[in-house]
Nucleic acid binder design. Structure first.
Lengths: 223, 223
DNA sequence: TAGATTGTTAATCGATTAACAATC
DNA sequence: TAGATTGTTAATCGATTAACAATC
Protein backbone atom coordinates (compact mmCIF):
# COMPACT_ATOMS: atom_id res chain seq x y z
CA UNK A 1 0.00 0.00 0.00
CA UNK A 2 1.13 3.46 0.99
CA UNK A 3 3.58 4.26 -1.81
CA UNK A 4 2.70 1.67 -4.40
CA UNK A 5 1.03 4.20 -6.71
CA UNK A 6 4.17 5.69 -8.22
CA UNK A 7 5.87 2.38 -8.92
CA UNK A 8 6.59 1.82 -12.59
CA UNK A 9 5.96 -1.65 -14.00
CA UNK A 10 9.36 -2.48 -15.49
CA UNK A 11 11.97 -0.82 -13.33
CA UNK A 12 11.88 2.03 -15.81
CA UNK A 13 10.60 4.69 -13.46
CA UNK A 14 11.34 7.55 -15.82
CA UNK A 15 7.78 8.81 -15.55
CA UNK A 16 7.29 10.53 -12.24
CA UNK A 17 4.69 10.00 -9.60
CA UNK A 18 1.43 11.65 -10.46
CA UNK A 19 0.96 12.78 -6.87
CA UNK A 20 2.90 15.08 -4.65
CA UNK A 21 5.33 13.35 -2.35
CA UNK A 22 4.47 13.31 1.32
CA UNK A 23 6.58 15.58 3.49
CA UNK A 24 8.36 12.65 5.11
CA UNK A 25 9.35 11.04 1.81
CA UNK A 26 10.54 14.32 0.27
CA UNK A 27 12.62 15.11 3.35
CA UNK A 28 14.25 11.68 3.35
CA UNK A 29 14.93 11.68 -0.38
CA UNK A 30 16.64 15.04 0.06
CA UNK A 31 18.81 13.52 2.78
CA UNK A 32 19.75 10.56 0.59
CA UNK A 33 20.65 12.94 -2.21
CA UNK A 34 22.98 14.89 0.06
CA UNK A 35 24.80 11.77 1.25
CA UNK A 36 24.97 10.27 -2.26
CA UNK A 37 26.41 13.46 -3.72
CA UNK A 38 29.08 13.52 -1.05
CA UNK A 39 29.77 9.79 -1.39
CA UNK A 40 30.23 10.33 -5.12
CA UNK A 41 32.73 13.11 -4.48
CA UNK A 42 34.63 10.82 -2.16
CA UNK A 43 35.01 8.29 -4.93
CA UNK A 44 32.38 5.73 -3.97
CA UNK A 45 30.75 3.86 -6.87
CA UNK A 46 28.10 1.91 -5.03
CA UNK A 47 26.43 2.25 -1.65
CA UNK A 48 24.21 -0.08 0.36
CA UNK A 49 21.03 0.84 2.19
CA UNK A 50 22.94 0.04 5.39
CA UNK A 51 25.62 2.64 4.64
CA UNK A 52 22.99 5.22 3.71
CA UNK A 53 21.30 4.41 7.01
CA UNK A 54 24.51 4.99 8.97
CA UNK A 55 24.90 8.47 7.52
CA UNK A 56 21.26 9.59 7.56
CA UNK A 57 20.03 7.87 10.74
CA UNK A 58 17.13 6.50 8.69
CA UNK A 59 16.27 2.82 8.98
CA UNK A 60 17.73 0.76 6.07
CA UNK A 61 14.42 -0.98 5.37
CA UNK A 62 12.74 2.41 5.21
CA UNK A 63 15.34 3.55 2.68
CA UNK A 64 14.84 0.51 0.43
CA UNK A 65 11.11 0.98 0.71
CA UNK A 66 11.29 4.69 -0.15
CA UNK A 67 13.38 3.95 -3.24
CA UNK A 68 11.54 0.88 -4.44
CA UNK A 69 8.38 2.98 -4.58
CA UNK A 70 9.81 4.60 -7.71
CA UNK A 71 11.61 1.74 -9.41
CA UNK A 72 14.15 -1.03 -8.93
CA UNK A 73 17.27 1.09 -8.58
CA UNK A 74 19.49 -1.35 -6.70
CA UNK A 75 21.40 -4.54 -7.47
CA UNK A 76 20.90 -7.39 -5.02
CA UNK A 77 24.10 -8.38 -3.34
CA UNK A 78 25.76 -5.16 -4.46
CA UNK A 79 23.80 -2.05 -3.49
CA UNK A 80 22.92 1.11 -5.38
CA UNK A 81 25.04 2.79 -8.04
CA UNK A 82 25.80 6.20 -6.58
CA UNK A 83 25.66 8.28 -9.78
CA UNK A 84 22.57 6.64 -11.16
CA UNK A 85 20.71 6.93 -7.85
CA UNK A 86 21.62 10.62 -7.68
CA UNK A 87 20.03 11.25 -11.04
CA UNK A 88 16.97 9.16 -10.23
CA UNK A 89 16.31 11.09 -7.02
CA UNK A 90 16.92 14.38 -8.80
CA UNK A 91 14.21 13.41 -11.24
CA UNK A 92 11.81 12.49 -8.45
CA UNK A 93 12.47 15.74 -6.60
CA UNK A 94 12.54 17.72 -9.86
CA UNK A 95 15.64 19.60 -8.79
CA UNK A 96 17.82 19.18 -11.81
CA UNK A 97 17.92 22.93 -12.47
CA UNK A 98 19.92 25.79 -11.11
CA UNK A 99 18.54 27.85 -8.23
CA UNK A 100 19.74 31.28 -7.29
CA UNK A 101 20.14 32.39 -3.69
CA UNK A 102 20.38 35.84 -2.13
CA UNK A 103 22.53 36.02 0.99
CA UNK A 104 22.05 38.83 3.49
CA UNK A 105 24.86 39.66 5.87
CA UNK A 106 28.53 39.88 4.93
CA UNK A 107 29.97 39.35 8.38
CA UNK A 108 32.08 36.35 9.37
CA UNK A 109 29.18 33.94 9.00
CA UNK A 110 27.99 35.41 5.71
CA UNK A 111 31.49 35.28 4.25
CA UNK A 112 31.94 31.71 5.47
CA UNK A 113 28.71 30.71 3.70
CA UNK A 114 29.61 32.59 0.51
CA UNK A 115 33.00 30.90 0.43
CA UNK A 116 31.78 27.40 1.14
CA UNK A 117 30.15 24.85 -1.13
CA UNK A 118 27.43 23.67 1.22
CA UNK A 119 24.76 25.22 -0.97
CA UNK A 120 26.51 24.69 -4.31
CA UNK A 121 26.11 20.92 -4.49
CA UNK A 122 22.46 20.77 -5.31
CA UNK A 123 22.37 23.52 -7.88
CA UNK A 124 21.99 26.29 -5.32
CA UNK A 125 24.21 29.23 -6.13
CA UNK A 126 24.72 32.37 -4.07
CA UNK A 127 24.38 35.06 -6.73
CA UNK A 128 24.13 38.12 -4.52
CA UNK A 129 25.47 39.19 -1.13
CA UNK A 130 23.98 42.12 0.77
CA UNK A 131 24.97 44.21 3.76
CA UNK A 132 23.99 47.57 5.20
CA UNK A 133 27.46 48.46 6.45
CA UNK A 134 28.82 51.08 4.00
CA UNK A 135 32.38 49.97 4.74
CA UNK A 136 31.60 46.48 3.46
CA UNK A 137 29.71 47.51 0.32
CA UNK A 138 31.80 47.09 -2.81
CA UNK A 139 34.15 44.64 -1.13
CA UNK A 140 34.95 41.53 -3.16
CA UNK A 141 34.30 38.31 -1.24
CA UNK A 142 35.21 35.79 -3.92
CA UNK A 143 35.58 35.67 -7.72
CA UNK A 144 31.90 36.17 -8.40
CA UNK A 145 30.63 38.08 -5.40
CA UNK A 146 30.82 41.72 -4.41
CA UNK A 147 28.95 43.02 -1.36
CA UNK A 148 25.98 45.12 -2.45
CA UNK A 149 23.70 47.54 -0.59
CA UNK A 150 20.33 46.25 0.60
CA UNK A 151 18.66 48.81 -1.63
CA UNK A 152 19.57 46.62 -4.62
CA UNK A 153 17.69 43.67 -3.18
CA UNK A 154 14.34 44.15 -4.88
CA UNK A 155 15.94 44.52 -8.29
CA UNK A 156 18.30 41.54 -7.92
CA UNK A 157 15.60 39.19 -6.68
CA UNK A 158 13.46 40.01 -9.69
CA UNK A 159 16.23 39.94 -12.30
CA UNK A 160 17.81 36.71 -11.10
CA UNK A 161 14.53 34.97 -10.35
CA UNK A 162 15.52 34.35 -6.74
CA UNK A 163 13.24 32.23 -4.57
CA UNK A 164 15.57 31.49 -1.66
CA UNK A 165 17.00 34.01 0.80
CA UNK A 166 19.61 33.19 3.44
CA UNK A 167 19.80 35.28 6.60
CA UNK A 168 23.27 35.66 8.15
CA UNK A 169 22.70 38.87 10.10
CA UNK A 170 22.70 39.66 13.84
CA UNK A 171 19.58 38.72 15.79
CA UNK A 172 18.47 42.33 16.10
CA UNK A 173 18.43 42.87 12.34
CA UNK A 174 16.89 39.54 11.35
CA UNK A 175 13.21 40.51 11.28
CA UNK A 176 13.87 43.69 9.34
CA UNK A 177 15.95 41.91 6.70
CA UNK A 178 13.41 39.09 6.50
CA UNK A 179 10.73 41.70 5.78
CA UNK A 180 12.82 43.08 2.95
CA UNK A 181 13.39 39.63 1.48
CA UNK A 182 9.68 38.88 1.65
CA UNK A 183 8.81 42.21 0.08
CA UNK A 184 11.25 41.51 -2.74
CA UNK A 185 9.46 38.24 -3.45
CA UNK A 186 11.54 35.52 -1.78
CA UNK A 187 9.47 32.44 -0.85
CA UNK A 188 11.90 30.39 1.22
CA UNK A 189 14.06 31.84 3.99
CA UNK A 190 16.94 30.03 5.61
CA UNK A 191 17.51 31.72 8.95
CA UNK A 192 20.92 31.45 10.62
CA UNK A 193 19.92 33.85 13.39
CA UNK A 194 18.02 32.81 16.49
CA UNK A 195 15.19 35.26 16.02
CA UNK A 196 11.66 33.90 15.69
CA UNK A 197 10.60 35.40 12.37
CA UNK A 198 7.14 36.59 11.43
CA UNK A 199 6.39 36.04 7.75
CA UNK A 200 3.25 35.77 5.61
CA UNK A 201 1.80 32.26 5.19
CA UNK A 202 3.12 31.77 1.64
CA UNK A 203 6.70 32.09 2.87
CA UNK A 204 8.52 29.18 4.54
CA UNK A 205 11.16 29.74 7.21
CA UNK A 206 13.82 27.20 8.15
CA UNK A 207 15.85 28.12 11.17
CA UNK A 208 19.26 26.61 11.77
CA UNK A 209 19.40 25.40 15.35
CA UNK A 210 22.36 23.15 16.02
CA UNK A 211 21.68 23.43 19.75
CA UNK A 212 18.43 21.50 19.26
CA UNK A 213 20.31 18.52 17.83
CA UNK A 214 22.86 18.70 20.62
CA UNK A 215 20.18 18.84 23.32
CA UNK A 216 18.55 15.75 21.92
CA UNK A 217 21.84 13.89 21.42
CA UNK A 218 22.90 14.77 24.95
CA UNK A 219 19.68 13.37 26.38
CA UNK A 220 20.39 10.00 24.82
CA UNK A 221 24.00 10.14 25.86
CA UNK A 222 23.12 10.87 29.48
CA UNK A 223 20.40 8.24 29.79
CA UNK B 1 -2.17 5.06 25.61
CA UNK B 2 1.29 5.81 24.21
CA UNK B 3 2.54 8.38 26.68
CA UNK B 4 0.18 7.98 29.60
CA UNK B 5 2.79 6.25 31.78
CA UNK B 6 4.74 9.32 32.86
CA UNK B 7 1.70 11.42 33.68
CA UNK B 8 1.58 12.51 37.30
CA UNK B 9 -1.78 12.35 39.08
CA UNK B 10 -2.14 15.94 40.22
CA UNK B 11 -0.47 18.16 37.63
CA UNK B 12 2.58 18.00 39.85
CA UNK B 13 4.87 16.29 37.39
CA UNK B 14 8.03 16.95 39.36
CA UNK B 15 8.96 13.28 39.29
CA UNK B 16 10.25 12.33 35.88
CA UNK B 17 9.22 9.51 33.61
CA UNK B 18 10.72 6.22 34.66
CA UNK B 19 11.39 5.33 31.01
CA UNK B 20 13.59 6.83 28.40
CA UNK B 21 11.84 9.19 26.03
CA UNK B 22 11.35 8.01 22.47
CA UNK B 23 13.55 9.68 19.90
CA UNK B 24 10.63 11.58 18.39
CA UNK B 25 9.45 13.00 21.70
CA UNK B 26 12.96 14.02 22.79
CA UNK B 27 13.59 15.73 19.44
CA UNK B 28 10.32 17.66 19.61
CA UNK B 29 10.78 18.69 23.25
CA UNK B 30 14.23 20.03 22.30
CA UNK B 31 12.61 22.09 19.54
CA UNK B 32 9.98 23.47 21.90
CA UNK B 33 12.70 24.41 24.34
CA UNK B 34 14.61 26.32 21.67
CA UNK B 35 11.53 28.30 20.61
CA UNK B 36 10.43 28.93 24.19
CA UNK B 37 13.86 30.21 25.18
CA UNK B 38 13.87 32.60 22.26
CA UNK B 39 10.27 33.66 22.89
CA UNK B 40 11.24 34.42 26.50
CA UNK B 41 14.13 36.57 25.32
CA UNK B 42 11.78 38.44 23.05
CA UNK B 43 9.59 39.33 26.02
CA UNK B 44 6.74 36.85 25.58
CA UNK B 45 5.07 35.69 28.81
CA UNK B 46 2.71 33.08 27.45
CA UNK B 47 2.55 31.08 24.23
CA UNK B 48 -0.17 28.91 22.72
CA UNK B 49 0.28 25.50 21.13
CA UNK B 50 -0.70 27.17 17.85
CA UNK B 51 2.18 29.65 18.05
CA UNK B 52 4.62 26.90 18.99
CA UNK B 53 3.34 24.99 15.97
CA UNK B 54 3.97 27.95 13.66
CA UNK B 55 7.60 28.12 14.71
CA UNK B 56 8.41 24.42 14.93
CA UNK B 57 6.25 23.05 12.08
CA UNK B 58 4.87 20.50 14.53
CA UNK B 59 1.11 19.97 14.70
CA UNK B 60 -0.49 21.87 17.64
CA UNK B 61 -2.42 18.84 18.84
CA UNK B 62 0.81 16.88 18.83
CA UNK B 63 2.43 19.57 20.96
CA UNK B 64 -0.36 19.57 23.55
CA UNK B 65 -0.25 15.79 23.60
CA UNK B 66 3.53 15.72 24.07
CA UNK B 67 3.31 18.14 26.98
CA UNK B 68 0.23 16.71 28.67
CA UNK B 69 2.07 13.41 28.92
CA UNK B 70 4.14 14.96 31.72
CA UNK B 71 1.64 17.17 33.51
CA UNK B 72 -0.94 19.90 33.04
CA UNK B 73 1.38 22.77 32.17
CA UNK B 74 -1.07 25.00 30.32
CA UNK B 75 -3.97 27.29 31.20
CA UNK B 76 -7.10 26.83 29.11
CA UNK B 77 -8.02 29.95 27.21
CA UNK B 78 -4.54 31.37 27.82
CA UNK B 79 -1.73 29.05 26.75
CA UNK B 80 1.53 28.07 28.40
CA UNK B 81 3.66 30.25 30.65
CA UNK B 82 6.94 30.54 28.79
CA UNK B 83 9.32 30.51 31.77
CA UNK B 84 7.58 27.74 33.63
CA UNK B 85 7.36 25.56 30.51
CA UNK B 86 11.07 26.09 29.88
CA UNK B 87 11.92 24.77 33.31
CA UNK B 88 9.50 21.86 33.02
CA UNK B 89 11.01 20.73 29.72
CA UNK B 90 14.52 21.19 31.11
CA UNK B 91 13.59 18.82 33.91
CA UNK B 92 12.18 16.28 31.47
CA UNK B 93 15.27 16.45 29.25
CA UNK B 94 17.58 16.64 32.29
CA UNK B 95 19.59 19.43 30.73
CA UNK B 96 19.67 21.91 33.54
CA UNK B 97 23.44 21.74 33.83
CA UNK B 98 26.32 23.33 32.00
CA UNK B 99 27.94 21.50 29.10
CA UNK B 100 31.35 22.30 27.72
CA UNK B 101 32.10 22.26 24.01
CA UNK B 102 35.38 22.03 22.11
CA UNK B 103 35.40 23.86 18.79
CA UNK B 104 37.89 22.88 16.09
CA UNK B 105 38.68 25.36 13.35
CA UNK B 106 39.32 29.07 13.87
CA UNK B 107 38.53 30.22 10.35
CA UNK B 108 35.63 32.48 9.44
CA UNK B 109 33.06 29.85 10.35
CA UNK B 110 34.75 28.87 13.59
CA UNK B 111 35.07 32.47 14.69
CA UNK B 112 31.44 33.13 13.77
CA UNK B 113 30.37 30.21 15.94
CA UNK B 114 32.65 31.23 18.83
CA UNK B 115 31.25 34.75 18.71
CA UNK B 116 27.59 33.79 18.48
CA UNK B 117 25.18 32.63 21.14
CA UNK B 118 23.55 29.81 19.22
CA UNK B 119 25.08 27.22 21.51
CA UNK B 120 25.06 29.32 24.68
CA UNK B 121 21.31 29.28 25.27
CA UNK B 122 20.95 25.76 26.48
CA UNK B 123 23.93 25.66 28.76
CA UNK B 124 26.38 24.79 26.02
CA UNK B 125 29.55 26.81 26.30
CA UNK B 126 32.49 26.83 23.92
CA UNK B 127 35.42 26.51 26.33
CA UNK B 128 38.20 25.78 23.86
CA UNK B 129 39.02 26.68 20.28
CA UNK B 130 41.60 24.75 18.27
CA UNK B 131 43.43 25.26 15.01
CA UNK B 132 46.53 23.83 13.36
CA UNK B 133 47.58 27.09 11.68
CA UNK B 134 50.55 28.42 13.72
CA UNK B 135 49.63 31.99 12.72
CA UNK B 136 46.25 31.66 14.40
CA UNK B 137 47.45 29.98 17.58
CA UNK B 138 47.53 32.38 20.51
CA UNK B 139 45.13 34.78 18.84
CA UNK B 140 42.33 36.06 21.07
CA UNK B 141 38.87 35.53 19.54
CA UNK B 142 36.73 36.91 22.36
CA UNK B 143 37.03 37.65 26.07
CA UNK B 144 37.30 34.02 27.08
CA UNK B 145 38.78 32.30 24.06
CA UNK B 146 42.29 32.06 22.72
CA UNK B 147 43.13 29.79 19.77
CA UNK B 148 45.06 26.77 20.94
CA UNK B 149 47.09 24.10 19.14
CA UNK B 150 45.40 20.76 18.43
CA UNK B 151 48.03 19.09 20.57
CA UNK B 152 46.24 20.49 23.64
CA UNK B 153 43.02 18.75 22.68
CA UNK B 154 43.40 15.57 24.67
CA UNK B 155 44.26 17.43 27.86
CA UNK B 156 41.46 20.00 27.53
CA UNK B 157 38.77 17.41 26.80
CA UNK B 158 39.73 15.52 29.91
CA UNK B 159 40.17 18.52 32.22
CA UNK B 160 36.96 20.26 31.18
CA UNK B 161 34.89 17.09 30.94
CA UNK B 162 33.98 17.79 27.32
CA UNK B 163 31.47 15.52 25.62
CA UNK B 164 30.62 17.62 22.56
CA UNK B 165 32.98 18.59 19.74
CA UNK B 166 32.11 20.99 16.93
CA UNK B 167 33.88 20.68 13.57
CA UNK B 168 34.38 23.93 11.65
CA UNK B 169 37.30 22.88 9.47
CA UNK B 170 37.68 22.44 5.69
CA UNK B 171 36.29 19.24 4.17
CA UNK B 172 39.77 17.78 3.64
CA UNK B 173 40.67 18.06 7.33
CA UNK B 174 37.34 16.94 8.77
CA UNK B 175 38.01 13.21 9.15
CA UNK B 176 41.42 13.76 10.69
CA UNK B 177 40.10 16.23 13.25
CA UNK B 178 37.11 13.99 13.98
CA UNK B 179 39.55 11.17 14.73
CA UNK B 180 41.40 13.41 17.18
CA UNK B 181 38.18 14.41 18.92
CA UNK B 182 37.12 10.78 19.21
CA UNK B 183 40.51 9.77 20.53
CA UNK B 184 40.31 12.53 23.13
CA UNK B 185 36.98 11.12 24.33
CA UNK B 186 34.28 13.27 22.73
CA UNK B 187 30.97 11.41 22.32
CA UNK B 188 28.91 13.83 20.20
CA UNK B 189 30.25 15.56 17.10
CA UNK B 190 28.52 18.41 15.36
CA UNK B 191 29.91 18.51 11.83
CA UNK B 192 29.73 21.76 9.84
CA UNK B 193 31.74 20.27 6.97
CA UNK B 194 30.24 18.18 4.21
CA UNK B 195 32.48 15.19 4.75
CA UNK B 196 30.88 11.86 5.59
CA UNK B 197 32.62 10.98 8.83
CA UNK B 198 33.61 7.54 10.02
CA UNK B 199 33.38 7.19 13.80
CA UNK B 200 33.08 4.32 16.27
CA UNK B 201 29.54 3.24 17.16
CA UNK B 202 29.54 4.94 20.58
CA UNK B 203 30.01 8.36 18.96
CA UNK B 204 27.10 10.27 17.39
CA UNK B 205 27.60 12.58 14.42
CA UNK B 206 25.20 15.36 13.45
CA UNK B 207 25.97 16.99 10.15
CA UNK B 208 24.68 20.44 9.35
CA UNK B 209 23.12 20.34 5.90
CA UNK B 210 21.08 23.43 5.15
CA UNK B 211 20.90 22.38 1.49
CA UNK B 212 18.78 19.39 2.50
CA UNK B 213 16.13 21.65 4.00
CA UNK B 214 16.22 23.89 0.96
CA UNK B 215 15.85 20.97 -1.45
CA UNK B 216 12.80 19.78 0.40
CA UNK B 217 11.28 23.25 0.72
CA UNK B 218 11.86 23.89 -2.96
CA UNK B 219 10.08 20.68 -3.92
CA UNK B 220 6.96 21.85 -2.12
CA UNK B 221 7.29 25.33 -3.54
CA UNK B 222 7.58 24.04 -7.10
CA UNK B 223 4.72 21.54 -6.89
C1' DT C 1 -20.85 35.65 30.12
C1' DA C 2 -18.27 34.98 25.69
C1' DG C 3 -14.06 33.75 23.57
C1' DA C 4 -10.08 31.19 23.54
C1' DT C 5 -7.27 27.36 24.28
C1' DT C 6 -6.09 23.27 26.78
C1' DG C 7 -6.41 18.25 27.67
C1' DT C 8 -8.08 14.05 25.76
C1' DT C 9 -10.30 10.71 22.84
C1' DA C 10 -10.85 8.04 18.66
C1' DA C 11 -9.84 7.21 13.88
C1' DT C 12 -6.53 7.22 10.32
C1' DC C 13 -2.25 7.38 8.34
C1' DG C 14 2.71 6.88 7.90
C1' DA C 15 7.04 4.92 9.94
C1' DT C 16 9.42 1.17 11.96
C1' DT C 17 10.81 -3.34 12.35
C1' DA C 18 11.63 -8.28 11.54
C1' DA C 19 11.74 -11.58 8.34
C1' DC C 20 12.74 -13.70 4.11
C1' DA C 21 12.51 -15.00 -0.75
C1' DA C 22 14.69 -13.34 -4.89
C1' DT C 23 18.85 -12.59 -7.16
C1' DC C 24 23.21 -10.32 -8.15
C1' DT D 1 28.39 -21.91 -5.38
C1' DA D 2 28.40 -18.90 -1.20
C1' DG D 3 27.74 -14.39 0.56
C1' DA D 4 25.55 -10.20 0.40
C1' DT D 5 21.90 -7.12 -0.28
C1' DT D 6 17.70 -5.81 -2.49
C1' DG D 7 12.60 -5.76 -2.89
C1' DT D 8 8.49 -6.82 -0.43
C1' DT D 9 5.28 -8.42 3.02
C1' DA D 10 3.02 -8.30 7.47
C1' DA D 11 2.77 -6.74 12.16
C1' DT D 12 3.41 -3.11 15.32
C1' DC D 13 4.14 1.31 16.84
C1' DG D 14 4.10 6.32 16.77
C1' DA D 15 2.28 10.60 14.47
C1' DT D 16 -1.44 13.10 12.60
C1' DT D 17 -5.84 14.85 12.52
C1' DA D 18 -10.58 16.18 13.74
C1' DA D 19 -13.47 16.89 17.24
C1' DC D 20 -15.03 18.48 21.54
C1' DA D 21 -15.79 18.82 26.52
C1' DA D 22 -13.51 21.21 30.22
C1' DT D 23 -12.17 25.48 31.97
C1' DC D 24 -9.45 29.70 32.27
Amino acid sequence: MSFSQPRAPQGEAEELAPERLSLGVAARLSQYLQVLTQAGKMGKDTISSQELADYTHVNPTQIRRDLSGFGKFGKRGVGYNVDSLVSQIRKILRTSGQHNIALSGAGRLGQAIAGSEIFADHGFRVVALFDIDPRKIGKRVNEQLVVRPSSDLMQVVQEDDIVVGVLAVPNEAAQEVADELVKAGVKIIFNYSETLLHVPPEVTVHTSSPAVDLLCALYFYLT
